[in-house]
Every structure is written in C-alpha cells, then in structure tokens.
Design a protein around this nucleic acid. Structure first.
Lengths: 160, 160
DNA sequence: CGACGATAGTTTACATGTAATATATTCTCC
DNA sequence: GGAGAATATATTACATGTAAACTATCGTCG
C-alpha cells in the first residue's frame, strides 16, 4: 500500500525509522528539487533565487524598505543581506538610499530596471508553478498547505 | 476559514496569486525552518547537515562507496562532494581508498570514529524529529508524505 | 596497439548561508 | 548632557551549491 517512492529514490536499503522521519525527508527532498528548477529559471535571467526573492518583496511592499525588514521576510539571517544587496545594486536592479532621519538605516529601492526584470519573469514563474504542482487538485493543494503550516507550529512555538 | 498563516508570517500585503504558489512557498519555508533546526543540532557536534547526510548514507550502505554513488543519493551535484569528503576526512570520520581494479574510482569508508559520532547523534535526531512534527497524527504524516511524493512526480517526469 | 569517447574525481570561480565580531547611530536613563 | 544599552549594517571566516573546465583512467574499435 505504502508507495515507498522516497525510499526508492534514495536507494535506501532499510525502511524509514518513523513516519516523522519519512515526512521530514520528503519535505527536504521536494524542496531541493523545486529549488533546483526555480534556480535554473532565475539563472537564465541572471538572478539567483534569493535575489529574485528580494525583488519580489520590494515590489510587494511598493516602496523602499530597510535591509532588516527585507531580511525578516526571508528565512535568512541578517549578514547575508549585505552581499545580496551589493550584487543587486551592481546589476542596477535596486538602489541604496541612506535615510536622513535615522542615519543607521539604509533604504533599498527597486529600480525601473529591476521592476522590468520582475515583470518579465512573472509569466515564466507562474508557468513553472503550474508545471510543478499543477497536477495536484485544489483540495490537495489546500490540504498540503494546511499540513505544512501545522508543521511549522512547532518551530515558532519553541523558538520565536 | 483559511488560516493565512503563511501570508501573515511573510507580512505579505497581497494574498497569494494561486494555491500552487502558496503551497510551493509553504514547502520552501517549512524546509528552511526545519533545516535551521537540524543544522543547529549538527553544528553542536561539529557537523553540517550535508556532512551528516553523507555519514548516514555510508552507514545505511554498510560498506565503502564510490563518491558518485553517494552524490546520487543526495540532491547535490557532483563537484560539491570533493570538498565535503575533504572536510570529513580531515575530521577522521571517513577514509578515502583508491580502488585497485578501476583506479578512477575512490571508495569512501566510514571510520569507527564516524560511526561513533553517528550513533551519538541517533537519539537527539529522533527526538528532534518528534519535536518538529510529532504533533501531527499518523494519518496526517502519511497524507503529507503522499502529497509531497505526488508533487515530485512532475520533476522526475520532465527531467530525469 | 593507439586514438577517441566515456567515466570518476578534482579544481576553480562565484553566490550564498551561518556565526562572530566590528562600526555607526540612536535611544534611555540617571 | 553623557555613559551605556540597543539598533541597523557591514565585515570576516568558513562550509556549501552550481557551472564549467580539467585530469586521470578505462574501454573500445579500427
């Protein structure tokens, strides 16, 4: 009855020790494969997944944002932002603006070029989403989201 | 009715464009948070997630394995293996053995020290699994695994 | 037997994630 | 008003993932 698909993919000789372990590995492996696919798409346009993520966040906000606010919406730790913004700025996709009131704060602003690149990616990204999980029914997608959100309850509970 | 938990976590102003996008982002975010937790545990023992993964694969196989066979069971691309093995070897957790028949092949072997470290991690790892998703019922865990495996059907179909 | 293609690993260059530390500013409180 | 805590970024060191190019072997086929 059990598919054992993951076990087969990993060429594991022994079955999983627990459904918990199996589910965790399924999350990790699915994520890796999806990230690979999206990474490939973004790379064709000179971006990495993280860089695309920053641009998306800036567009969603609709106005310049401080570094920390951007970092907060990504899972990442703060220090990585500096280099990330550096490279985006070098490509002319964002601009740094030091805030005049609080000189510690640096606002990151999406440039026209950045917005244009984002727009250019909208359709391919949506299509990839459809290609990757379009074969799941709406009910399954909702159930999947529900279960994953339930998974994360433990994380926020223990730490944050 | 919809929880909107992810939307809230990401401080998104706009709702998701599609259930597909929402599910994909849920996968990515859950994975990131879980990886963070496991990464922290492994780091306490001087390992990274990838390094632990290599050791687990070697133990599961029960005998020395060529580099490529190990890489195949991870999602990673080949070149990363070299440095990974380098660092594990430097820590004395694995050993390199050049095959005498086919001198291109290099067997990676788990050392006693590596096996000991793995054994030491078994209980903490299982406990973390329980902490992270132990609050899901057995039915939910199975359904989650089923849905994630169904997600991956598209990937293997199009590419591999 | 000798060139050629395939295979196993390595090297290099670059973007990233993590931790620890440093720097510039601002805030707070006596 | 100034010392010290808190905040926003940056810097550095290291492990990793990706792509592309390189090396060493092996196999095969003429």
């Amino acid at each position: 009855m059990t598919t054992n698909r993951l076990q087969h993919e990993l060429k594991k000789k022994h079955p999983f020790e627990s459904p918990e372990q199996e589910a965790t590995l399924n999350i990790i492996r699915t994520n890796d494969q999806f990230q690979n696919r999206f990474g490939r798409l973004f790379r064709e346009h000179g971006l990495t997944s993280s860089q695309y993520n920053v641009l998306r966040i800036l567009r969603g906000e609709g106005k310049p944002m401080p570094c920390l606010d951007i970092a907060e919406r990504m899972v990442q730790v703060v220090p990585a932002m500096t280099g990330l913004i550096d490279r985006l700025e070098k490509q002319g996709l964002v601009r740094r603006d030091r805030c005049t009131e609080d000189r510690r704060v640096i606002f990151i602003e999406l440039t026209d070029k950045g917005a244009g690149l984002l727009h250019q990616l909208d359709e391919p990204v949506m299509e990839l989403h459809r290609n990757l999980i379009g074969h799941l029914s709406q009910t399954e997608l909702k159930e999947l989201s529900r279960l994953l959100e339930k998974c994360r309850l433990s994380v926020s509970g223990v730490f944050d």
